[in-house]
């Protein structure tokens, strides 16, 4: 077994070169380079967890904004509904008053027109009496040769008109 057979000649060289090479590995690689490599990995881990936290926070904010939006949406809907109801009531009231005013005006016009119609028909009736009385006097004068008085003719016409 060379490990034992050669130990006397080789132990010092083995120990020397091992310390030299492992010293290089430890001081140059282990202490010089590994912390930087590990630092990069740690920085990346920190960045990833930081980004995840930020995303989570943004998500929570979005949820909050949505809830806020819903509340405001419901509020404005209610407000709009109220405005609508109020406007409807106002419009109804306004149209009612206008309608009443128009009704009154129309009624007044109708009354005036009816009065004019009555007057006109009375006048026409009187005209008819006069014309009829004249005609009756003419007929009496031609047939009997008698001059009938105005009053007699008028009474006769009135009696005839009343009997229809």
């Amino acid at each position: 077994m060379p490990q034992i057979a050669q130990i006397a000649e080789t132990y010092s060289s083995q120990i020397f070169w091992l310390l030299l090479t492992f010293g290089f590995v430890f001081f140059v690689i282990g202490l010089g380079m590994v912390p930087k490599v590990q630092g990069t990995a740690d920085a990346r881990d920190a960045k990833i967890s930081g980004d995840l936290d930020a995303a989570k926070a943004a998500f929570a904010r979005a949820d909050e904004a949505e809830a806020d939006y819903r509340v405001r949406d419901a509020q404005s809907r209610a407000a709009a509904q109220a405005t609508l109801v109020q406007a409807k009531a106002q419009a109804a009231k306004a149209s009612e008053t206008k309608l009443a005013a128009a009704d009154a005006e129309v009624a007044a016009k109708i009354a005036a027109a009816e009065a004019r119609i009555k007057a006109a028909s009375d006048a026409a009736l009187a005209e008819i009496e006069t014309v009829a009385a004249d005609a009756a006097r003419d007929m009496v004068a031609r047939i009997a040769g008698v001059q009938a008085s105005d009053d007699a003719a008028r009474n006769a016409v009135k009696a005839a008109l009343a009997h229809g």
Binding site: E9, S13, Q14, W17, L20, T21, F24
Partner: peptide, 21 residues
Amino acid sequence: GFNIAFTNSALYMVLAAVVLW
């Protein structure tokens, strides 16, 4: 006074260190 011959063993120690480097 100690022998520090560069042996095949030392060569592989150096190789391991260099490959790791």
